[in-house]
Design a binder for these strands. Structure first.
Lengths: 208, 208
DNA sequence: GCCAAAATTAAACAACCGTTTAATTTAAAC
DNA sequence: GTTTAAATTAAACGGTTGTTTAATTTTGGC
């Protein structure tokens, strides 16, 4: 898979990310993208081949780098709980920075699965799970984490909590009285992140 | 809001649910629905007015009843932890029974928000949160749950974990070696449900 | 300045979209 | 059996979709 994207291609991907996040993959037309990106409709086909391939490029472009950061985190000299907390922060930061990739990752990939899910993206997920596994097993070896935790179900809780919060943004803006975009993002970075960290910590030390 | 749906309308809703869950709202055409349901394309407009209104009817049709069950649960004579566990079971059962409503609730409603999110569905969510709040506060009053839990963030963890697991079905089928549909559904009903129950319980008794 | 490759364009393509119309069939009431 | 309303149909509507074509412009090496 080539990674040599020129400036124009990246510009198209950025616009596509915003619009896909806003209106969904099927809800966004190539003409929508080309209008916002101020390019000709044909450019998407010219650069990416098709709309589906554009999505694939976008996902690979936006998820590259996370793997390396996770591997770096593993080798850091930190307490087990600190490592888990940093991992959670890393995930949330990563998802929160990119304008709306979380919605794409979460939804579009599971309906367009024939093309995308089974290819390279499955490998990224497996690699990330492997990193988490290493961190948890390290904590277990040190006798800090309980032994019978189902590691595969930790990511659903971490990411699922985050996704569900973002997916129901209008609802939580309302009930938590988060009036500005800044207040909302701030809540995610502080309270929500802390909630997820506490949840995972509680689960890791919990004895039945 | 009228609830008097005839058999034909319900039949259309069932087909729409399956297809929306499979291919998304925008990815499903009225012609797709009419083909599977073996009706004329005009029938959707005739019965529901428009495609958007069909979605609205579907959501209301499928979410009705949960509220009553939650209220019943509150008044049952159970230990606080048992009540929380039953609530989690109730949510998962409810989502698991309906073929794919979770995807619609989770995703479509947040992009079509102008029409749906702000109307009756926000009220359903608020009502369900209120029920959860009553259960948690009862447990706190009895001194079983810790006091500083953010109740609003419990639902994201409960539902988010479930949603994330379902959204990444191909991935979890693979790594958990769940080869048949039955094995997968069984895992959801036993292991995943237990994981969520344990997570919430751990969070509710966790002391910082 | 010339030329080949790359980038960009407007236009056209056929296919599909949600919705409406107007005609026909079915059902029920009297 | 006639009447009236509801249900169902095929066809057409104007618009949008993703993609391709063929022509034009821009670019960079010589």
């Amino acid at each position: 898979m080539k990674n040599d994207l020129n400036d124009k291609q990246i510009q198209i991907l950025e616009v596509a990310e915003t619009l896909f996040a806003e209106k969904g993959f099927d809800g966004t037309s190539i003409r929508d993208i080309s209008k916002v990106a101020k390019i000709n409709v044909a450019m998407v086909s010219y650069y990416f081949g098709s709309k589906e391939k554009l999505l694939e490029s976008l996902v690979l472009f936006k998820t590259s780098g996370l793997k390396e950061r996770l591997v770096n985190l593993i080798e850091e000299n930190l307490e087990p709980f600190e490592k888990v907390n940093k991992l959670i922060e890393l995930y949330i930061n990563r998802l929160n920075c990119n304008r709306g990739i979380y919605r794409i990752l979460h939804f579009e990939l599971s309906s367009k699965k024939k093309v995308l899910e089974l290819e390279s993206f499955l490998e990224i997920k497996k690699s990330n799970l492997k990193s988490l596994e290493l961190i948890i097993k390290e904590g277990q070896a040190k006798g800090v984490f309980r032994k019978d935790v189902i590691i595969e179900l930790l990511t659903p809780t971490i990411l699922g909590t985050y996704f569900h919060f973002q997916m129901n943004k209008p609802f939580f803006e309302d009930i938590l009285n988060l009036k500005t975009e800044e207040a909302y993002n701030n809540y995610v970075k502080t309270d929500l992140t802390k909630h997820i960290q506490q949840t995972i910590k509680a689960l890791l030390i919990y004895e039945n």
